[in-house]
């Protein structure tokens, strides 16, 4: 049985979800943003909530997230996505509201907004893409940059003396009483992406149960910023980032 025959006779096992637009993503080859966008789109399709979902896109590479998912979007100023999501959810409690933010956006510029939205227990899902650097602006050091990691603004490696410790925002947010679900995942392999989808689904469900904020961190790569090939970046992430940011569910109430 050759390939053409399998395609003609076989069952369609996997195709691009209709929630993703046909527009080509502007992300670099191998960027985790694409995989996470797809995971979100597939969860939205599986739950049948395309008409009821509002996403808040951040500032950073994923600022154009609204171009790639066929749902309603708002674009927030630097780091202010949780504030905008708060307003959106309070005005339209029947909608599924989520924010999509990178580490520069949520852990640095928007740290206050993120922590206070979580502390208030807003019924939103916050998705935090952590690649350890500011990807869009050229790979500068972020609060989540690992100790000793070389970036554009720490060419000899980050040091604790000069730059302080790596910020673990997810761990910081987990003890807050307003937060009902905190998990950390990755999207480097198909298995990891499937786990991420389950976490996102749980987050969306929680946002309708008035349980509080759900927070899902995705450990990602920025192969252009890290100056590696996409596959090497994934391996580097597994070796260096997973020990500092261990994967798993941190809080589930």
């Amino acid at each position: 049985m050759d390939v053409k025959e399998i395609i003609a006779k076989g069952d369609l096992v996997y195709e691009k979800t209709k929630v993703l637009t046909d527009k080509e993503m502007h992300y670099c080859p191998g960027c985790t943003h694409g995989t996470v966008h797809k995971a979100i789109a597939e969860v939205i399709e599986e739950m049948g909530i395309q008409e009821k979902t509002i996403g808040i896109s951040p500032v950073g590479c994923s600022v154009f997230a609204y171009e790639y998912l066929h749902i309603d979007w708002q674009q927030a100023a630097h780091g202010r996505a949780p504030a905008l999501a708060t307003a959106t959810k309070r005005l339209m409690p029947e909608k599924y509201v989520f924010t999509y933010q990178g580490d520069g956006d949520i852990a640095s510029i928007g740290c206050a907004e993120a922590i206070h939205a979580c502390n208030r227990g807003e019924n939103i899902l916050m998705i935090f893409i952590n690649n350890g650097i500011y990807g869009m602006t050229g790979g500068q050091m972020a609060p989540t940059t690992l100790d000793g990691m070389k970036t554009a603004t720490s060419p000899t490696g980050r040091t604790v003396e000069q730059n302080g410790y790596t910020l673990d925002l997810t761990k910081m947010i987990a003890p807050l009483p307003g937060v009902c679900y905190v998990a950390r995942h990755s999207a480097d392999t198909a298995a990891a992406t499937r786990k991420l989808k389950r976490a996102l689904k749980k987050g969306f469900e929680n946002s309708m149960k008035n349980k509080g904020t759900s927070f899902v961190e995705v450990i990602s790569t920025c192969n252009s910023g890290w100056k590696m090939s996409p596959v090497a970046a994934n391996e580097w992430m597994r070796e260096n980032m997973f020990p500092v940011f261990p994967l798993g569910t941190i809080k589930d109430e």
Partner: peptide
């Protein structure tokens, strides 16, 4: 036809078929 490639593809350019 495990569709691992399609799920991990960041740009979702892969479609998978399978014959049982």
């Amino acid at each position: 036809g495990c569709s691992n490639c399609a799920i991990s593809c960041p740009d979702t350019v892969i479609t998978v078929y399978r014959v049982k």
